[in-house]
């Protein structure tokens, strides 16, 4: 049985932990607000982009010579999985749920005899995958020490994906990230980047007119598709940042509550034991006196 001193130390250490988790929760709450604003502010751009792409894609669909980024290479032998995770842990199941989704996907592809290549964005995903899937990882990007993600941070990731694609390194590219639903719920999502999935946007009503394209549609499309990759990556990273803070906030909230419960339990135990010791000492004194 633990001595009184042990219990006292234990209570002090749990109290210290509670202070830390409480502070982390409040920091996460403040960062969440900023990350959420950034994610919402980035939405119009990707929505417009999707609408215009859908429009153009429908006009070149079925024509020969559609850009490979849109039509694909005609094969689906080699898959590139881009896995975006956080730089830090202590955010509940956030990182592991993204990694799990990606791993299931990879296993399924390998069972079908496909080749899998992995590119990780964020340190935690790389850490989780490199032991088992190390030989598949072709590239690892991390944004350590970056305070606020800007578009030019996402651009090199997009550029890298495109240059790998142009070298014929893969046929299909899928991006894994956690979509921000609410503070309590973040949904791990797989998004196909190449060939571009453009069914999302709805074409605007032109009232019977058709677009004049300057230069022609094919050229606009070949300019737009690479940009679209970077935009999608940027959006995914912003969603991820908001999700990460949300996950950390709720994880730290439950950790704080758990620490509180633990302190209560330990205090009760401590009080009982102190009482027992006092009683024991009294009995010793009384029985000593009686023996005289």
């Amino acid at each position: 049985m633990a001595s009184l001193k042990d219990l006292r130390n234990r209570i002090a250490s749990v109290k210290a932990t509670r202070k830390i988790t409480k502070a982390m929760q409040m920091v996460a709450a403040a960062k969440l607000r900023r990350a959420q604003e950034a994610a919402v502010a980035a939405r119009p751009y990707s929505e417009r982009m999707a609408a215009v792409l859908a429009n153009l894609a429908s006009s070149v669909a079925g024509r020969d010579g559609a850009p490979a980024l849109l039509a694909g290479t005609g094969k689906d032998q080699t898959h590139l999985l881009v896995i975006a995770t956080a730089e830090r842990g202590l955010c509940g199941g956030f990182n592991s749920s993204i990694v799990r989704l990606a791993r299931d996907h990879a296993e399924r592809l390998m069972a079908q005899g496909k080749t899998v290549k992995i590119m990780t964005v964020g340190k935690k995903g790389n850490d989780a995958l490199k032991r088992v899937y190390g030989k598949y990882i072709v590239d690892a990007v991390d944004f350590r020490g970056l305070k606020q993600l800007a578009f030019f941070n996402a651009q090199p990731v997009g550029a890298k994906i495109i240059s790998l694609f142009n070298e014929g390194q893969f046929d299909v590219c899928t991006l894994f990230f956690a979509e921000f639903k609410s503070v309590m719920s973040q949904k791990p999502t797989a998004l196909q980047l190449i060939p571009a999935a453009v069914a999302g946007g709805k074409a605007p009503d032109l009232g019977g007119a058709i677009y004049d394209a300057e230069p022609d549609e094919g050229e606009i499309l070949s300019d737009l598709l690479p940009r679209n990759i970077s935009v999608q990556v940027f959006r995914a990273l912003l969603e991820n940042a908001a999700s990460e803070q949300g996950a950390r906030m709720s994880a730290m909230d439950s950790a704080t509550r758990n620490a509180g419960d633990m302190i209560n339990k330990l205090s009760i135990k401590y009080n009982r034991q102190r009482q027992a010791q006092i009683t024991k000492e009294l009995i010793e004194i009384i029985s000593g006196a009686e023996a005289l």
Partner: peptide, 9 residues
């Protein structure tokens, strides 16, 4: 206002 639909880079 009222310009014909155009796409341009």
């Amino acid at each position: 206002a009222g310009h014909a639909p155009v796409l341009s880079t």
